[in-house]
Nucleic acid binder design. Structure first.
Length: 152
DNA sequence: CCCTGATTCGC
DNA sequence: GCGAATCAGG
């Protein structure tokens, strides 16, 4: 497999969400958990944002996982049109937030849809989003816009 | 044993 | 840079 920007984004996102390396590897596909860990270290991440844990119970906050399946109405159905239906990224659950982590205010947290929903679903880093924007500063804003450009 | 992430090291 | 093997811990 190849570490495309999308996959790296996904790795970042999932890692920051607290998913385990094996879970990330499973969702990315084509890589072992060792590969994920190794890449994570090379990317400079490895320390997750404090006490965000959402493994037990498996009730992840974001990652809506839109089920894309064309219902077989007729036998000669057409291929799924992929209408690019961007699910509303704005959610605020994110648990209460880590003590001392999230800044009070209108910020919701950087979270926006990422390339292939089947693979990553959502980018999500711990950073607070800009007011009125789904993404945070600098890196995420750039990545967010790049995604839109690429999609176009 | 199952799992976790961390590190090493040949490629 | 990549990731299997290995290490250390729960």
């Amino acid at each position: 497999m190849e570490w495309t920007e999308e996959r790296i984004e996904a790795l970042r996102s999932l890692w920051m969400q607290g998913l385990t390396a094996s879970q990330i590897a499973e969702r990315l596909g084509g890589v072992s958990r060792n590969a994920v860990i190794g890449k994570a270290h090379r990317l400079g991440l490895s320390a997750r944002p404090s006490p965000i844990k959402r493994e037990p119970g498996a009730k992840p906050v974001p990652i809506p996982r839109p089920a894309r399946v064309a219902p077989p109405q007729h036998h000669h159905a057409e291929p799924a049109p992929m209408p690019a239906a961007p699910p509303p990224p704005q959610q605020q659950p994110i648990s209460a937030k880590a003590p001392g982590a999230a800044p009070a205010g209108g910020s919701k947290g950087c979270m926006w849809p990422i390339g292939d929903p089947k693979q990553a679903g959502f980018h999500f880093c711990g950073a607070p989003s800009e007011p009125g924007r789904p993404y945070c500063t600098q890196h995420c804003a750039a990545a967010y816009h790049k995604r839109q450009v690429d999609a176009a």
